[in-house]
Measured scan of single mutants.
Amino acid sequence: MQRVNMIMAESPGLITICLLGYLLSAECTVFLDHENANKILNRPKRYNSGKLEEFVQGNLERECMEEKCSFEEAREVFENTERTTEFWKQYVDGDQCESNPCLNGGSCKDDINSYECWCPFGFEGKNCELDVTCNIKNGRCEQFCKNSADNKVVCSCTEGYRLAENQKSCEPAVPFPCGRVSVSQTSKLTRAETVFPDVDYVNSTEAETILDNITQSTQSFNDFTRVVGGEDAKPGQFPWQVVLNGKVDAFCGGSIVNEKWIVTAAHCVETGVKITVVAGEHNIEETEHTEQKRNVIRIIPHHNYNAAINKYNHDIALLELDEPLVLNSYVTPICIADKEYTNIFLKFGSGYVSGWGRVFHKGRSALVLQYLRVPLVDRATCLRSTKFTIYNNMFCAGFHEGGRDSCQGDSGGPHVTEVEGTSFLTGIISWGEECAMKGKYGIYTKVSRYVNWIKEKTKLT
């Protein structure tokens, strides 16, 4: 034993070699072989497995989906700052455009905790909710729209109204504003409101030439003092309507412009014939205590009207009353817009006519005020429907199939267009061939041609 100890002390290297040989010859039971080890760690190889990531292109799944990435790591994937920024906006807080917040056709661009709407022409605001041009839906104005110097929408209202708090709607500024039905039992019968379409306001006024200088022999019209197929109006439903009495009662109609003036057809009036105007009328054979009678003290036909040349060209006249009318729910003026808007309103496509005229061709006159909704007829169809001249200051309205029309005794009465609950004068009943005849239409004086003249002559002093 002493000898062994001496050998170990003198030859430590020998001992180490012996131990190493023993270990190498022993069977290893701690580690699995290569094949079995792979069965336990069965993990798919990654895209760049075996390579240094710093030297390969980034992978979106590896960089940002398996674990949260930084902007720089995302930049490695896209290799483009702009594309990385677009991805980053949604990656950080989701897609803010998912709810489609942009209105009126706006395009949404996502941002971090926010979004941006790219608005089409005519709109602005956070969600493109603000109209900035009158060309689109009248700028959301209830009545009139004008573009300011910086191309912003400025709404306005006709006389007797003021802008509401929203700067879009119009509200009454006087007790009985024009064009409004205020009798409670008839307010439910107000005709369907007309909503502004998209309009090209630059070209809204037709490029028409008034044929002022045409000389033409007097034409022989049949029954051209021209509501057939209409309905009984309720008291106060058309408070701007008046009836004219002269040699015979209810020979023509008219509309209240203001307390002192009536507008009617020029062919209705004769110099030297006494005319009485009755406002607030409903049943011409009954006294309903809503009527107001006034005498006409002055007749002003349009300066281009000449019955000797043509009885229905420039067929418009103004009547001055001896005493002002007292405005109330049964006696209310009709609204008159400017030339541009009167023309736009007419193009809405349908209007209402009213009167006490004959209820059928050569038949009896109506006792109760009649009204009828009539569609506008395109000019080409209008011209083809008659052998008589249709001037540019006239328009056609009615039904091709016949059966409904204005008729004798309705002449001078109103053709009105309702705009968001307020009625505007767009025409004056003038003439036609018979009444409600198939293929024939009622012919009306186009008020847009005469609004400046009306307003100039009827100013209240």
Rank of each mutant, 00 (worst) to 15 (best):
A9P: 12
I297M: 07
C268G: 01
I256E: 00
K274R: 10
P333K: 04
D223I: 10
K440Q: 14
M65Q: 15
Q167D: 09
D198P: 12
F360W: 13
A307W: 09
K168S: 04
V447R: 00
V199P: 11
D198L: 07
C145N: 00
Y391N: 14
N222A: 15
I429M: 14
E281C: 10
R404L: 15
L189A: 11
H282F: 08
V353G: 02
R162I: 10
P120C: 02
S184D: 13
N100M: 07
L425P: 01
A149Y: 09
T342R: 00
Y330Q: 06
N213D: 07
P12N: 11
H303V: 06
E54M: 10
N452F: 05
F399T: 14
V92T: 08
S107F: 07
K51D: 09
N36K: 11
R373Q: 14
S385G: 13
L19I: 11
A366H: 12
H400D: 14
E27K: 05
V181C: 06
S25Q: 09
Q237P: 08
R140C: 04
G106D: 00
Y22S: 10
I7T: 11
R140E: 06
Q408K: 13
K457D: 02
V269C: 09
D315V: 00
E35T: 13
G272N: 12
T158G: 04
D315Y: 01
E340M: 08
P12I: 14
F78I: 15
L321C: 02
F71G: 15
F424E: 00
G403A: 08
W118T: 15
H415I: 03
Q216I: 06
G272M: 08
S448T: 05
F251P: 06
R140W: 08
P239G: 02
C435R: 04
G421T: 06
P101T: 03
N59E: 04
G236L: 05
T417N: 10
M394K: 03
C178T: 01
E434L: 11
F360A: 10
I429D: 08
G272W: 06
D212R: 11
L23V: 10
F123C: 01
C435G: 05
A26Q: 02
E456I: 11
A337I: 01
R43I: 10
K347W: 04
N245T: 10
V56Y: 08
T271H: 13
G13D: 04
W240H: 02
Y450T: 01
V77M: 09
N151M: 13
N38M: 07
K89D: 15
N100W: 05
S350L: 14
W261D: 01
T209F: 08
S70E: 12
V174M: 07
P414Y: 06
E231H: 13
F251A: 08
F176D: 02
L244A: 01
P333W: 00
C252P: 00
S448W: 02
D378Q: 09
E456H: 10
P101A: 02
P101L: 03
G413R: 04
M394S: 06
P375R: 15
H289A: 06
N127F: 05
C119H: 00
C134Q: 02
A436I: 11
V416S: 08
S11N: 10
V243I: 14
T422Q: 03
I262T: 01
K387V: 05
N59M: 04
T445K: 00
K293E: 09
V368I: 11
T287R: 06
N135T: 08
N127E: 04
E66G: 09
A250L: 08
S49L: 09
H415M: 04
T332L: 12
K89W: 05
H302S: 03
A279L: 01
K168V: 08
R294Q: 02
I300M: 08
N343F: 03
G254I: 00
Y91W: 04
V359H: 13
S25L: 12
E285L: 13
N59S: 13
I136V: 09
S156Q: 08
A308I: 07
W356R: 10
N313P: 03
D338T: 10
Q96L: 06
D223S: 11
I316P: 00
C108R: 01
T426F: 00
A397L: 01
G122V: 02
N295F: 06
L325W: 04
N100V: 04
K446Q: 05
T417S: 09
K293S: 08
C407Q: 04
G398L: 04
N147G: 09
Y352G: 04
Y161H: 04
P375L: 08
V377W: 03
N113D: 10
K45L: 14
T85W: 05
I136K: 08
A173T: 11
S25R: 06
C141W: 00
Q167L: 13
A436R: 14
W88K: 15
R75K: 15
E98V: 08
M65F: 10
E323P: 04
H400L: 10
S430Q: 06
P301A: 10
W261N: 01
L103P: 01
L52S: 15
L367D: 12
D232F: 09
Q143D: 00
L14W: 11
T194C: 04
N138Y: 04
D338A: 07
I309N: 13
N100S: 11
T332C: 06
R294N: 01
T225P: 09
Q2T: 06
V368R: 11
E418M: 14
C435E: 03
D33G: 13
Y441C: 03
S25T: 11
F424P: 01
T190L: 07
T190M: 04
I344C: 04
I316C: 01
N306C: 05
V195F: 07
P324A: 13
S70Y: 11
